[in-house]
Design a protein around this nucleic acid. Sequence first.
DNA 1: AAGACGTGGCG
DNA 2: TCGCCAAGTCT
Length: 290
Amino acid sequence: MREPSRLRQPVLDWYSENARDLPWRRPDATPWGVLVSEIMLQQTPVARVLPIWTDWMARWPTPGHLAAQPPGEAVRHWGRLGYPRRALRLHGCAQAIEAHHGGVVPSDYATLRALPGIGDYTAAAVASFAYGGSHAVLDTNVRRVLARAVQGDEYPPNSTTAAERKLAEALIPPLGAARWAVAVMELGALVCTARAPRCADCPITAQCAWRLAGKPAYEGPARKGQTYAGTDRQCRGRLLAVLRQAHGPVPKAALDVVWHDPVQRERALDGLLADGLAEALDGDTFQLPA
DNA sequence: AAGACGTGGCG
DNA sequence: TCGCCAAGTCT
């Protein structure tokens, strides 16, 4: 990018006019609120996160509040957000923050990155959005916008490459890195979408390499389609739903009725136990982890 | 390093 | 209808 500002300024101006009013973006949002939102937003649409986040923050307004609860309560109030191991990891974050960081969400990337469930993206996002840090924030939205606008490809590579990271870092403005990061993400989420991009509403359509090339179809390897019906994942979801709603010990018979195949059912239950999402009181009774 | 890991809405 | 996709992380 010879002139990063050719890309940045229009996106920043667009964001000023089109940013959604999300609670974790408001001035009164705490670093804890930002961290909670980022974990919840992993692979999960904003609309589904909103009500869970609101309930969660009212219930546990600080890491200390959550850390004082058994992990099963985090899993219970995670509801049907999906990927419930995130609830366990968020609980782990709260405990680590209490035990090792004085109850304060860390502000530097490396410390955040060491917390459970916090990878490259989330560490960069929390450091940027909660503390105004300057990092390359590479999520699926940003990767797609850069793939199109700069590389001229419809989609980014299947996994993040060094080239993508280098490009993202080159685009970080000297001032206002966090606002730039959230602005590109928002553009990817609202306009430069995966399926049917709204190029007519795009602030950088004039300089978008992909559009200028005539929107050539994606050529890379097919992205892995995720099946769900009939999988262990679906089975685990059914079993965990029973435990979540139970508010107490659940006899095995109550789990047996939600999945027909006993082999798969046993495997899924063992998986939940191994993951710490459930625990056995005895051989025949189960509950969320206390 | 490919695959596991939830769930539901949309085109 | 049904496959694709959503602010990824971990092993």
